[in-house]
Write a protein that binds this DNA or RNA. Structure first.
Lengths: 106, 106
DNA sequence: ATGGATTGTTTCGCTACCGTATCATTGTTG
DNA sequence: CAACAATGATACGGTAGCGAAACAATCCAT
């Protein structure tokens, strides 16, 4: 709990890009759960409507955290892919958590 | 990292009240750091402007997660206090984290 | 090929957040 | 007491989020 506190505090302070709770959760899901990820699937997983995912992908795409491509086997689908920027963002978050965890353990 | 993913996912899904990252961080700070807490102090800690704190206290106050009282020794100050509702909210969050932590450890 | 189902996007009206600047109230200092 | 400083709240214009509903594109079944 204290770890969450310190890590979230650092996240808010640094606030690389200011993501919402949903966006951060979405980002974690995309990067930690094996692909493929579709809009519909992500919406169902998070328990939100599809436009929420579309908008989140818009803004996170603009930040370079995530990328969309059309599925060629079923061109109705959109496949969400990871990016270098997103990987860096998560790596940074992981560092914060680890650092704060270490400090709390002293 | 996976723990954060699962716990945040559950938090988004359940979505008791839908707090922003800043609001959640603020709530954690108020409940995990010894009082007294003032608007100015919280703003400095989170690295945000004072109106952000005022607004967050407005909405979180309306949700019963937090309470404001005037400081009688210096009536310019506002002291932020914990509430039963806020304690319950955090307890719930703690439960989620612990549960998910247990499941991941299986 | 045409009617229906499925997927992701867009539009709509609304709400909530943001930072800057300003304000009212209270304390402090000369 | 007057001028100044400090604190929290408010006003303002702008941005971004929300769900519901409508939409375009694509697939599928007949």
């Amino acid at each position: 709990m204290h770890l969450w506190h310190s890590a979230m505090l650092r996240l808010v302070q640094s606030e690389a890009p200011d993501l919402t709770l949903r966006q951060l959760s979405l980002l974690l899901h995309i990067y930690l759960v094996p692909p493929p990820h579709t809009v519909r699937g992500l919406a169902a997983t998070l328990g939100v409507t599809k436009p929420v995912i579309t908008r989140a992908l818009d803004s996170m795409g603009a930040l370079g955290l995530v990328r969309r491509i059309r599925d060629d086997r079923d061109r109705r689908n959109v496949i969400i892919q990871r990016t270098v920027g997103g990987a860096l963002y998560l790596e940074k978050l992981g560092d914060i958590i680890i650092e704060e965890g270490r400090e709390l353990a002293l």
